[in-house]
Design a protein around this nucleic acid. Structure first.
Lengths: 339, 339
DNA sequence: GTTTTTCATGTTAGCGCTAACATTTCATGT
DNA sequence: ACATGAAATGTTAGCGCTAACATGAAAAAC
């Protein structure tokens, strides 16, 4: 008794069906689809006709299994709710798309443990490379990358240990915007921080360094909350800050959400911005140019970071060296009414 | 001469290696990982130890190929830059994650042709099902789904043709917010529309229906632009609208970006909102509760749509019937200062 | 005209896993 | 004691594709 045939995936048309229809061998079909220049014009055409006629869709799983290349890249980001990472994704997408790669998006929710689990889970897909947000990760993270010989590019910040990275100095950016507030004559400059991820902490370091240099650092002017940031939280933090330190004359908020919340609240309170209180944000999101008063902030090249990081990763995957293993894309102060 | 061995993917540890280390057959390892209740406690433990010791990561490709199930779902959305779809994704993610499914995200950039290409490209991964934004698609789209016997759930809107869908009536929502403006005594209510996707056009239909019912529809009060919407565009469209029709006394903007831009511009112009001009948006994004004056808008249950749609899809994949093939999750008017 | 090289195509085997069937083990009923 | 069936484990084959090698035909070199 013959055994029951297995179910087939997809519409059931395989490369062999195409080959039979075109009167060639399977490998020829494979070559027409993957290295067309290796096949003569005549056969190429015949095969393509058969592909169209049968509506053949090749199976990525079979291809990955046979070739040990998945043409897939894993992208690890901390949040899908933050425009910053979405614009980075958009940049990555354009490059990968053009190269025939697909991206797997792993959202770690700002949690190093979850990030590690994501990496493990997505390794099942045998990605050819990984794009990673941030430099510091849970313990066995780097070791796993190493074991699997996975090319990796780190995004958003700059590493000093030889890891391939594309970004800008979060610390320098934090220092720069703080110096701007100093240049406006402010001396009791506060810091509002939420989420408290790696990048926020570095901006905080930059803020501290700038104030130390100016001799007016005051630890009592830092307000930090590990919760995710939101406009509501910015408003609440402003209330708390003014209650504790009514002498505060400027605020550097670790991102624009917080800053817009604080700005909005100070408008409600009738505070004179920027005279009584200057406010600066970080990232230059769309609403920052539109709120009243318009928000001073730091524009970050997140889309370009995505593009450059993806390009560098593709080079690494192909065994080449990227143009630079440490690409500093800089940042730009956007000086507006709120300061 | 023996032929050169092939390269291996990943770290090179296979299920057979684990099986040998644990002193069992490969299929037992497979069962420990996939149907653990079928294996005795003792063996299960021995196998798990071997898995950990060797840091074994199963290959999804091999599994997909052998079982004709990819445990993967394709999600088609029109944009990654729009919070609305991201929150939908977040809802989908929670459900799929819990069920051990992974999602492939396809971004069509609001282009039906690109959407079709995405579907074709992602079919290579043999997804077990598809979550689709919107009801109308390029020609062979539905046929392809059919050919591949792909379970599909449509999101954001309600179909009348038996397709499984989760959403709310865009048309009814557009009508409801328009009736609200009418109830505020407005009679020359304009419509600002951008992007002009399917959902915007249905909101427009609802707006027209409500005005027809009240006997004050005026085709000269509709301003439509196929470009992607932005705050800038909202501001520009407000200028154009007031220049053409200074008698306009209310505006329904097809989304909050446009509305905030228009609101901001009318503040700059010193217009009295809502007395001289009432403004309403759509979606209830975060800034809408924070701009001045706060924005009247329609809150949409996008996260829940994601959750429900994913749940329904999982049922369809398992060959069961979802609770409802047409889940109406409703919407909510958020009445604020701008009206 | 013969050898060498190049190019186009084919044959074979195997990537790592799981469905289907086969076998063994052991508890249960009679 | 033995049949009966359920539970646990194993054997075999094959999912659909491509790397490696093999072959044949045409072009280039001598």
């Amino acid at each position: 008794m013959p055994r029951k045939p297995r179910v087939r995936s997809g519409s059931g048309v395989t490369m062999h069906d195409v080959a039979k229809a075109a009167g060639v061998s399977a490998i020829t079909v494979s070559r027409v689809l993957n290295q067309p220049q290796q096949v003569s014009e005549a056969l190429r055409e015949k095969v393509m006709q058969a592909v169209d006629a049968l509506a053949y869709v090749p199976s990525r799983s079979a291809s990955t299994l046979a070739s040990a290349r998945s043409r897939t890249v894993l992208v690890l980001i901390p949040s899908l709710a933050n425009t910053v990472f979405l614009e980075t994704l958009a940049g990555i997408e354009t490059v990968l798309d053009a190269a025939g790669y697909q991206m797997l998006i792993g959202n770690s929710h700002y949690d190093a443990g979850q990030e590690l689990q994501l990496l493990r889970a997505y390794l099942q897909h045998r990605p050819d490379g990984v794009l990673i947000t941030g430099l510091s990760h849970a313990e066995p993270f780097e070791r796993i990358l190493c074991q699997h010989a996975l090319p990796a590019v780190y995004m958003m910040d700059l590493a000093d240990d030889g890891r391939c990275c594309v970004g800008f100095s979060q610390e320098e950016a934090g220092a720069a915007i703080t110096r701007h507030l100093l240049s406006r004559g402010k001396r009791r400059i506060g810091f509002l921080g939420a989420q408290l991820d790696e990048r926020v902490m570095k901006r905080l370091e930059g803020y501290r360094a700038a104030l130390d240099a100016a001799g007016c650092r005051d630890a009592g002017l830092e307000w930090l909350d590990p919760q995710p940031s939101s406009m509501q939280m910015g408003a609440d933090m402003l209330d708390a800050a003014l209650a504790q330190r009514p002498d505060c004359d400027a605020l550097f908020c670790c991102n624009d959400d917080l800053a817009i919340g604080a700005l909005s609240r100070s408008q409600q309170l009738g505070l004179d911005v920027p005279e009584r209180l200057a406010i600066a944000g970080f990232n230059d999101l769309q609403p920052s140019a539109w709120c009243t008063p318009t928000l001073t902030t730091v524009a970050t090249p997140r889309r370009d970071i995505g593009v450059h990081a993806a390009q560098a990763l593709l080079k690494l995957i192909d065994g080449e060296e990227p143009e630079s293993r440490r690409a500093d894309l800089g940042f730009q102060l956007m000086l507006r009414r709120s300061s």
